[in-house]
């Protein structure tokens, strides 16, 4: 409907006749009203808590009694607690074990799925995405059965001639089990992100590459991966942030057996934080843990961004 579009000056005079100034003020006011619920809630449940967490990390407090200023003592307690560093190592290991193979697998699945010879694309997409809609608790319970002592995981190991593993207590076993749960729930999600990235690459690029005699593997390296880079950066960043916050899988999988505390083999930073606050009522050290977690998150995000910038420099140089 091109004829229904009034030109900008015409619209201006039209509105001005109705008293634009007051109308303009009124509409600004309405806009502020429309966006105010977010800012109100964020002030109470977002901004204030962040400031208060920083403040709290310098105090000793059990959430009930008076607060006592202790300076950096909470940070010293946490960073001198070997359990905290165990949780740090565990988080990093499980993150790496759950994320790196997951993203490679997701990329492969997406490339295969995007191929012209593949039929039933929509069905595959739905099937791959099914794990992601399942709650983490449900995923953990199913995999707990899978990894139980006489369960299917050990039977599969037996088929390969490997001795059964105590998946609920072995140092690596616990980590592999948790990483498997993370992988199962998120591979399909990332496949679909990559697939949408692949579909945004114009097909004539491949056409041209083929005329130039590029093999399919060369096409993958010189066209697909560079153009998919924003999607890869997005998924790596989201996976990193997500896995630093790993809580439910280890908590549900290991937080049992009468003691209410999670086994050391699967202790993650957020589980540590949760136990400090709601298990031991050490709100000060828990707050310090939260601040350290934020610092780690920022550091890892920056490393990601730095690495992706470097990588783009390399591939850019190679492609030109």
């Amino acid at each position: 409907m091109p004829q229904s579009q009034p030109t900008a000056p015409a619209r201006e005079t039209m509105v001005r006749k109705q008293g634009w100034l007051t109308e303009r003020k009124r509409s600004s006011l309405m806009a502020y009203l429309f966006i105010s619920p977010f800012f109100l809630l964020f002030a109470i449940f977002g901004l204030y808590p962040i400031v208060f967490t920083l403040y709290l990390s310098f105090y000793k407090w059990d959430a009930l009694g008076p607060m006592t200023f202790v300076g950096l003592q909470n940070y010293r307690f946490v960073t001198e607690d070997p359990l905290f560093w165990t949780s740090f190592t565990n988080t990093l290991l499980i993150s790496a074990m759950g994320t790196i193979p997951q993203l490679i697998l997701a990329l492969l699945l997406a490339v295969f799925l995007n191929s012209s010879i593949t039929k039933f694309k929509k069905t595959f997409r739905v099937l791959y995405f099914m794990p992601n809609i399942t709650s983490i608790v449900a995923v953990t319970l199913v995999f707990s059965a899978f990894f139980s002592n006489g369960g299917m995981a050990n039977w599969l190991l037996g088929l390969l001639g490997i001795d059964p593993l105590a998946w609920g207590s072995d140092w690596w076993g616990v980590k592999i089990a948790i990483a498997t749960m993370v992988m199962w729930r998120w591979t399909g999600y990332n496949t679909i992100i990559y697939l949408s990235g692949l579909q945004s690459i114009p097909t004539d690029l491949y056409e041209a590459a083929r005329i130039d005699g590029a093999s399919r593997f060369q096409q993958l390296l010189t066209i697909t991966l560079p153009l998919l880079k924003p999607f890869i950066v997005f998924t790596v960043l989201m996976s990193t942030i997500g896995s630093l916050q790993l809580f439910t899988e280890p908590f549900v999988y290991l937080g049992q057996g009468g003691t209410s505390s999670t086994r050391e083999e699967g202790l993650t930073m957020v589980v540590y934080l949760y136990t400090e606050a709601f298990g031991n009522s050490f709100f000060g050290t828990a707050a310090a843990t939260a601040v350290l977690l934020l610092i780690f998150t920022i550091v890892f995000s920056l490393i990601n961004m730095w690495a992706s910038r470097r990588m783009s420099g390399d591939t850019g140089g190679g492609a030109v």
């Binding site: 977002g46 204030y48 808590p49 962040i50 709290l56 916050q245 957020v270 707050a287 939260a290 601040v291």
Partner: peptide
């Protein structure tokens, strides 16, 4: 902003 940062307050 990670959710865990604001959970205690």
């Amino acid at each position: 902003v990670p959710q865990q940062l604001s959970i205690l307050p």
